[in-house]
């Protein structure tokens, strides 16, 4: 038996989540005294794939095929299942990324396997039964989930698991599964990438602003602060509802859930629905002119003050710090 892990790339470069899931899968494999085997789909160089050997992966199956350049969840799911069967995997790990969410349930259904999505801990095993933690109720709770099927599919929550180096040597193997034309049910027409932007779900630092900023014209300083910190930008729901910022930046219970190392909330009151999406951030800084703003109750550091005064000072202070 083995642990199979699906490795995502962006235009041939392994994603940060790829190393997270690789490291996670190899820890599970270690517990199970099995091998951790990776599967990569698309054009990724052997040199790039070889990096996975630093994270406990002993074999990488690589599927390159001109028809697989863009993501089609049905085809990708069939390939992952074929790999799982070839390697007799009893555990399949994916990232709980946008693509992972479209893929993992199909993989699980094909294998008639139970699926835990958004795991935040390495499972413990008791014979066939695995137990692990994940958040529930939009981060308002942490749940322990039991997975009882013989084959188990787990998606790992981004940023929730500390990558650990574990050096092995990995053999890279071309894998040529049969691909059914009927699996090409969706056709990608266009990919629009905001190349200068840091991806919000994967970001280690997030700078977020709310209605306290008064209008879209004031986001210059938010973007500048994000740039100084190498952070992604985010916003509260009313801000994206009003069209001040794109929907893709809206965090919270009905937006994106983030768990960066540092979340800086500027001019956001801290409504329960907003907190639900950000409360698992490791460190929270709140800047708000109202000392009674509920956000201060869940913050690590707070500044009671006017964002229009504090943010430019913070940018200057950070520039000075980075300059040293």
């Amino acid at each position: 038996m083995s642990v199979l892990v699906y490795i995502e790339n962006t235009e041939g470069v392994l994603k940060k989540s790829a190393f997270e899931v690789a490291s996670y899968a190899s820890q599970i494999a270690n517990l199970q005294q099995d091998q951790a085997i990776a599967i990569s789909i698309g054009d990724v160089s052997d040199a790039e794939l070889q990096k996975l050997e630093n994270y406990g992966i002993s074999k990488v199956l690589t599927v390159t095929n001109d028809n697989l350049k863009s993501f089609v969840n049905q085809v990708y799911a069939s390939i992952i299942v074929a790999a799982a069967q070839k390697e007799q995997a009893n555990i399949v790990v994916l990232s709980n990324s946008f693509s992972g969410k479209g893929l993992a349930p199909r993989v699980a259904a094909k294998l008639e396997a139970g699926l835990v999505s958004g795991a935040i801990s390495v499972p413990s095993f008791n014979a066939e039964v695995a137990e692990m933690k994940r958040t529930a109720f939009s981060s308002k709770a942490i749940a322990t989930v039991t997975l009882t099927s013989p084959i188990k599919v787990i998606t790992l929550s981004p940023n929730a698991f500390e990558i650990e180096e574990r050096k092995t040597s990995a053999q890279i193997e071309n894998f040529v599964p049969e691909i059914a034309s009927t699996d090409f049910g969706t056709i990608v027409k266009e990919i629009i990438r905001a190349t200068d932007k840091i991806s919000l779900p994967e970001a280690e630092i997030v700078v977020s602003a709310g209605r306290g900023l008064k209008g879209p014209e004031n986001w210059g300083m938010i973007e500048e602060l994000a740039e100084v910190l190498g952070a992604a930008t985010a916003c509260s729901k009313p801000v994206s509802d009003a069209g001040w910022r794109p929907h893709a930046e809206h965090v919270g219970q009905t937006g994106i859930v983030v768990s960066p190392n540092l979340y800086i909330a500027i001019g956001i009151s801290g409504a329960i629905q907003h907190l639900a999406g950000v409360s698992s951030s490791k460190t929270i800084v709140v800047i708000n002119k109202d000392p009674e703003a509920p956000f201060f109750k869940v913050a690590d550091y707070g500044i009671v003050g006017d964002a229009f005064v504090v943010v430019p000072q913070l940018i200057a202070a950070l520039k000075a710090y980075k300059g040293n």
């Binding site: 981060s139 308002k140 749940a143 201060f296």
Partner: peptide, 26 residues
């Protein structure tokens, strides 16, 4: 069913917020 929830915890609460004066951004 192949999965079930067996136990819930509420996330660890943070310590009290450290307030920093506006004039002391460094």
């Amino acid at each position: 069913a192949l999965t079930s929830f067996s136990y819930y915890e509420t996330p660890a609460t943070r310590g009290k917020v450290k307030l920093i004066a506006e004039s002391d951004i460094n």
